Simulated assay, not measured.
Amino acid sequence: MFKTIFTSLTLLLAFSSFSAQAQMADRLSEHPSFSQATIRKAVSDDALVVTREMSNRLHLNEGQFLNLLPLNRTKIVGLKSIDREYRNDAETRAAKAAELEAQYEQECSRILTPSQLSQLHHGSEQPATEPSTSGNGVG
């Protein structure tokens, strides 16, 4: 008799727990902005856009494109993480971002040709130098 009551009570608690978990999952699915799948899709889309832009600018072959895509995903996730973790510490955030950028460039140097690397660096520095040359009074 005691075993039957104990077993029934255990099953009742287990079903209650499953029901609560299902309700929580339903509640979370109502807010897709908090979904990990949504976040992963957004990062994946961003990485795809960045990699396509690199492909157009650097004339990547298919193998390079496929190798750079996960690398760009990792960089985007890393930058978002750094921004979130160090949002109140600009100096540390900048140092961590520079460290991530150095790792990214090192990985790019394994995938890209020297000419492509040069174009990559020239393209990333161009917006920083453009405003200083546009103020020369020519125009």
Rank of each mutant, 00 (worst) to 15 (best):
R52N: 13
L69S: 03
N61Q: 00
D46R: 15
R57K: 12
N61R: 00
L69H: 04
F65P: 04
V43N: 09
L60D: 00
L58H: 06
L48H: 14
N67G: 06
Q64S: 00
S55Q: 05
N61A: 00
A42Q: 13
L48S: 15
A42S: 11
R57G: 02
P70R: 12
V50D: 03
D45T: 07
E53Q: 15
L48K: 15
A47Y: 00
P70F: 09
Q64F: 01
L69D: 00
A47E: 05
N61Y: 01
K41T: 08
L69E: 02
L69P: 01
Q64P: 04
G63T: 07
R57Q: 08
N56L: 03
N56F: 03
S44W: 05
Q64M: 04
N67Q: 15
L69R: 03
L48R: 14
Q64I: 03
P70N: 08
G63Y: 06
L58W: 05
M54W: 04
P70V: 10
V43S: 08
V50N: 04
R57D: 10
S55H: 03
E53V: 15
L58Q: 04
L60H: 03
D45Y: 06
M54I: 04
L58A: 06
N67W: 08
A42T: 11
P70W: 06
F65M: 05
V50Q: 07
P70L: 07
M54H: 06
Q64R: 02
A42H: 11
N67L: 12
D46M: 14
N61K: 03
E62Q: 15
D45A: 11
A42M: 11
P70M: 09
D46G: 13
K41Q: 11
R57Y: 08
M54Q: 10
F65V: 01
H59T: 12
L66H: 10
V49F: 09
L48P: 09
N61P: 00
H59A: 07
V50H: 06
L69N: 02
M54C: 03
K41L: 11
D45Q: 07
N56S: 04
L69M: 02
S55L: 05
V50P: 03
D46L: 14
P70H: 09
T51F: 12
L60G: 00
N67H: 11
T51K: 10
M54E: 03
V50T: 07
L58V: 08
S55N: 07
K41R: 11
R52I: 05
F65E: 03
V43M: 10
V50I: 13
L68K: 08
A47M: 00
H59Q: 11
N61C: 01
R52F: 07
N56Q: 02
E62R: 12
V49M: 10
V43G: 03
S55Y: 03
L66M: 13
L66I: 09
H59S: 13
H59G: 05
N67S: 13
N67C: 02
H59W: 07
R52Q: 13
V50R: 09
T51M: 14
E53A: 14
R57E: 09
A47R: 01
P70E: 04
L68I: 13
E53C: 12
L66F: 05
S55T: 01
V50E: 04
